[in-house]
Amino acid sequence: MADSFVIAVASGKGGTGKTTVATNLALLISRAGKKVQYVDCDVEEPNGHIFLKPAIEKTEAVTVAVPQVELDKCTGCGKCGEICQYSAIVAFKKNVLTFEQLCHSCGGCMLVCPTNAIKEKQKEIGSIDHGSADSVGFVQGRLQIGDVRSPALIRQVRQRTAAEGTVIIDAPPGTSCPVIEAVKGVDFVLLVTEPTPFGLNDLMLAVGMVRELKLPFAVVINRSDVGDDKVRQYCRAEEIDVALEIPDDRRIAEAYSRGDMVIDVLGEYQKHFADLAEHIEGKVYAQRGL
């Protein structure tokens, strides 16, 4: 049975519970006897490992290409600087400077250089860990401290996702380039939010993003009994599916603070997450016409 699909857990606002939802969903699916992989794409601060406690079996370095100029071949024409949209390379006559942190690795400077004075060199930006936690496959990206090129690293992490089974991507917060890189092309997106003005504002941005990307999605409302009713009103008005509501339960906060899994500590949540998994599967299969 071909039941492979990729679910991304995202949110506009940070701290809404993406990792709680993603890790518990992954563990629950694996305990149901299915093949599942948890992929932490929140590469600036991956924290799924705190809850899943994986054994890391392999770590690989991730590099990106940046320009290296051979000044003896440079004629000082300045074309490299003109094509660069990020000021990562700039020519002051024959004095060519590169700013590796700003480089987006497009290769444009190498293409336009008339004397082939620019070569590619590899620059390390982070690493990818591979491992497993019980039967949950585990992959996480870690961006080097001080580096800013998370989209390039997330793209590499996405290339390591399993070809079969369920893949659960823990996306970074926000709606900008790193998030797009983490969610594009997935089968389903879960948007985790909270019923507060910030939660609503950022949910609306996130909904705009997934609609632009034409991705099917549903909302999870965390701490659903605090704040106000505006997130629910918005979801009703926009005909957005609310797949799960998690109440503001002190026991969940306590479990989280110890690094425990919610489904281990609070038995009733096994059913909630099982229902959520089934709900998403149903939607994905319906979409595929199965």
Binding site: G81, Y86, S87, A88, V90, F92, L97, L102
Partner: peptide, 15 residues
């Protein structure tokens, strides 16, 4: 209003 690299581009202008 440059997204990034404003200092570098501005240096180019004055040079």
């Amino acid at each position: 209003g440059a997204a990034g690299g404003a200092g570098i581009s501005s240096a180019k202008v004055v040079i």
